[in-house]
Nucleic acid binder design. Sequence first.
RNA 1: GACCCUAUCGUCCAGCGGUUUAGGACACCGCCCUUUCACGGCGGUAACACGGGUUCGAAUCCCGUUAGGGUCGCCA
Length: 446
Amino acid sequence: MSIRVRFAPSPTGYLHIGGARTALFNWLYARHTGGTFILRIEDTDEARNTQEAVNVILDGLRWLGLDWDEGPTSSDATAPSKGNHGPYFQSQRKETYAKRVAELKTKDLAYERDGAIRFRMTRDPIVIPDIVVGDVTRPLTDREEQDPDFVIVRSDGQPVFHFVNVVDDLEMGITHVLRGEDHLSNTAKHIALFRAFGVQPPKYAHIPLILNLDGSKMSKRDRGASLTTYTDEGFLPQGVVNYLALLGWSPKNNREKMSVQELIAAFDLPQVLRHNAKFDMTKLEWLSGEYLRELTDDDFRVRADAALRHASLPLDAFPADYVRAAIDTCKGKVKKFAELASYAGFYFREDVTIDPELAAKEFTPEAKARLKKLRDTFAMQRSFVAVEWEKSLKAVAGDLGIKAGPLVHPTRLAVTGSSAGPSLYQSLEILGPEKVLQRIDRALAI
RNA sequence: GACCCUAUCGUCCAGCGGUUUAGGACACCGCCCUUUCACGGCGGUAACACGGGUUCGAAUCCCGUUAGGGUCGCCA
């Protein structure tokens, strides 16, 4: 039997990183087994669901490269969808739920109380066979002991999550439910519901949660909790995918950097870990940076251009050649595109602002004297390609009897306003003599 | 509070009874390379939560304690 898995997010307005990881695991499992990956939108809470919110999910999955075999084709719940188990928006499946409620009522497994419809929950402990954790026995809790039956349709007529989730998994022929461990305890309810419908429940695999570095739950406000963090800051999707795959799953051979194809080939449920993982942004940045370094020159240019414009740098005020040459000096130097504005901004700004503390440290009277001498040598230069700038600087260093370093540092600070940046000589070539001399003069006047 | 899950370097993972002076990666610290940064190379600091068992032998199996997480809604 072919494997059918699903990602069933609720459109809350953002895609949680844990949700993205759940989607990834489902997707990898489907691709690994040749199964079907289904996207279902759980928009039962009509008040807070908007097309905007649905788009956040669709765009997020597309950015990650997680394509779905069945599901919506757009954020419009009424638009045609892909696959023959639709509709894939719960808001469009009301008749199905009504039919299933009636079925339970007929079997006397559901009844009305206080305007709501309740399910007759079994009083016996339920064993949840979980692929990741093993068999988990879930008895009723103290509270449930008082009143084990739970609401499946609210008094306002809206069916609740536990019910629609089970009905849809049943109707859509879901074979494996891979979801966050936060659903483990509730799975007893789901299993009871499946049995009430007279069918075998799907196989369950509850995957461990992603927590903050301090062990707390990652909530909307935490940096990195929303996928937009990564799209906005210019991470590379393959880096995010690679990192996410390694949280709660392991290829067991100490591999770190793996392509999507390698992940698909290696991914399987037995290697899913059982304990929660803490989210380490630093490692993600490293991994994403690895992929960024491998970008083709053209790909890098396009993305860098967009990132710099996004940071409001006036690229259009410069010749295309200039912009391109400036961007090229940054290749392989940054880990994410959001760093580019501060790294290469000096190419596109009229003035460089120099941190007073750095200036005080770097522009000592002695350094200024050297810088002045260098400035005068620069002024006599005839050619302004990188090697000529280098020759001049080294010649001055030679005259002064010092190494290039003590001359490079103040020059870089004067010209770029930063102590780190692209190759100095390249930068000087791109900036051109006019700006270089002007900026050195300004620094000398500090 | 009750129930459930989990527990190896700061973090992510390897380890699934002896081959382990516990391995890799990120981070951190040195050194080298180098015009800065980054990259790369070399080296280093750093962990089996605790207590009982089982066994000739335990990071690995069992029990307890502790800690963390989850669930107990007419939220999803």
